[in-house]
Simulated scan of single mutants.
Amino acid sequence: MFLWIKAIHIIFIVTWFAALFYLPRLFVYHAMSDDTTSKERFKIMERKLYYGIMTPSAIITIILGFWLLGMANYWWQAGWLHAKLTLVAVLIIYHIYCGKLMKDFKQDNNKHSHVFYRWFNEFPVLILIAVIILVIVKPF
């Protein structure tokens, strides 16, 4: 049972990260758009991605992660896991901030340039690299 839950957990991690990579990319294009039709199209795409894929994937990932923690009896002594969980908490904050940025776009109240969003888009890549290293290498 543990391996099935772990496999499904990883599947939803992948879908969550796919959305975390794509939503800020939509923000880049949205920030660059000038016409109303494009802006309205991006609002729809952002909303569907955030509420239809990104948030459900995050919720399922987190629930399955807690389930796995409950099944493991060593987690309290694994330093790498504590670091990973800290990074997951940071990722949740990033996710919520993406929702705030999406609402700003929805209200035509974006305050950032496409350059900001290009850099903003790189943050989850750094988290992903760190988490994979922590999980596979278990450096401490």
Rank of each mutant, 00 (worst) to 15 (best):
H114D: 13
K106I: 00
W67R: 12
G70C: 09
G99L: 02
I59S: 03
T61S: 13
L64D: 11
F66L: 13
I60Q: 08
T37N: 02
S113Q: 07
N121Y: 00
I60D: 06
G65F: 01
G65I: 02
E46V: 01
L128W: 08
N121G: 13
F116T: 03
R41P: 00
V115K: 11
L85V: 10
A89Y: 08
Y97Q: 09
H114V: 01
S33I: 07
V88H: 01
L26F: 12
Y22E: 02
Q107H: 10
G99T: 04
K103L: 12
L64S: 14
L68A: 07
L23K: 03
Y117K: 06
D35R: 10
L85F: 08
W80Y: 14
N110C: 07
K100W: 07
G52C: 05
V90E: 00
T55Q: 04
Y74R: 13
L68W: 11
L101K: 14
Y22P: 02
D108I: 04
L68R: 03
Y29R: 01
W119S: 09
L81P: 06
F116I: 02
I59D: 09
C98N: 11
L68S: 03
G52I: 06
I63H: 04
H30R: 15
P124H: 02
L91D: 10
V125Y: 14
I53L: 15
L126E: 09
F116A: 00
F116V: 06
L69A: 12
I63C: 10
I59A: 13
W75S: 15
Y29A: 08
M45P: 01
